[in-house]
Design a protein around this nucleic acid. Structure first.
Lengths: 218, 218
DNA sequence: ATAAAAATTTAGACGACCCTAAATTTTTAG
DNA sequence: CTAAAAATTTAGGGTCGTCTAAATTTTTAT
């Protein structure tokens, strides 16, 4: 089948293609996979031969339908395992990424199916990211960034864009939890920081940098 | 740290050393790991350099204390995951070996600790094999083979030596379950097959080949 | 429009793990 | 006790995924 490494490249291409729209560059992949551009080029040739990506030299790269199907399968596994680690084993949401990076490569369709059932068919992982369907569809969420919300609006905190331990610990510290109702009281014009009120009635100051990484819905 | 492959060699050396007493041969390892003797020699040199085995050319191999500690750690992980797969995900005891072979290599001490707690600190895996302690001790069981039990004795089925799907399915079919009380009614002198009575009152015929792979206690 | 800068690919190499074929050592049988 | 058989190791090589250095293509800035 496909190697551990190939799976990681596919997942990374999917991620980058959806962050910055369009083709993914060799350098961006090298940075994300912590390798060098030359190594990426080698792998791209291999993935192109296997028909998992569309690749023209010097032109960047795009997943084929089959490549996207595989990428979504890996992402589905990753997110289901994260749910398991947090809900069943009691890990913090800031501790599960690295472990799920390994678990996502376990090769057993049956395992994923049973895990999904065991977890009660969750729709979202602990960071609020939607879990792709068994058929390989990424659910649409229609979330906005908190940084784009107008003053006076009340919204619900749904997901985080940044997964680093530091960022997540910072949110815990500010009592910002997913599912939490927040009302935007003030938007500072000069630094775009916001002052929100959370359910407990407490006011929380949120920098623009943080607000850009919080996804909300009405 | 240590590679996936190194871990598998250590585990296999442990297994073979405890089956046939004493030193483990290159050929035996080649057969178990489904590689060739020449490849085994390469790996043995590497493991010896890392001080995980005692190795003299042409003399067979033995784990060092550190090597045994690592082997028991892998075996502990393997068996805990098997418990998870059977008890939590509902897999059959004949379906879990291959998946646990992959899960056992996930590198997180915290994960194993939490899994152990989640499972309620099980002492035995679904095949009745004892789970090594966190400190790296293999619990003694004192089981005997069913093939060594005298006629008239009543014993309890505790574990299986053979883990193949065919063997386990055969036991399921004969209604032989772990924990099952059996009384040996007859031992055939010419083929050493035994006739036992199980809890339900049913009589079950067990060939010597099968009896040799069943472990019991009084 | 073109020269400098940036991005990408090619060339050549390395470590991990595996292989086959040949050489060497140990074991076994007569 | 020695010659044949069996086990093991060495020699030389292959693939995968990585690297550095050099060559090539694309982009950017003047």
């Amino acid at each position: 089948m496909h190697s551990f490494t190939e799976e990681n490249y596919l997942k990374t291409i999917y991620y980058l293609a959806n962050r910055r729209q369009g083709e993914v560059s060799t350098n961006a992949l090298a940075e994300m996979t912590a390798t060098k551009a030359a190594s990426v080029t080698d792998m791209l040739r291999k993935l192109a031969e296997k028909q998992l990506i569309h690749y023209k030299k010097y032109q960047g790269v795009r997943l084929t339908d089959e490549g996207e199907r595989l990428a979504l399968q890996i992402i589905r596994r990753h997110r289901l395992w994260e749910v398991f680690l947090v809900q069943k084993l009691g890990f913090g949401w800031d501790e599960v990424h690295e472990i799920a990076e390994e678990l996502e490569h376990i090769r057993s369709e049956e395992l994923v199916t049973r895990l999904d059932t065991y977890l009660g068919y969750p729709q979202f992982d602990p960071h609020g990211d939607p879990i792709p369907t068994p058929a390989g569809q990424m659910p649409e969420t229609g979330y906005r960034k908190l940084s784009e919300v107008e003053a006076g609006e009340g919204v619900c905190l749904m997901a985080v864009l940044e997964h680093s331990t530091e960022f997540l610990k910072h949110l815990d510290h500010s009592q910002l939890t997913l599912g939490c109702q927040v009302t935007v009281n003030e938007i500072n014009t000069f630094d775009k920081s916001v002052l929100v009120q959370i359910e407990s009635g407490r006011s929380v100051f949120i920098s623009h940098e943080v607000a850009r990484n919080l996804l909300v819905k009405n």
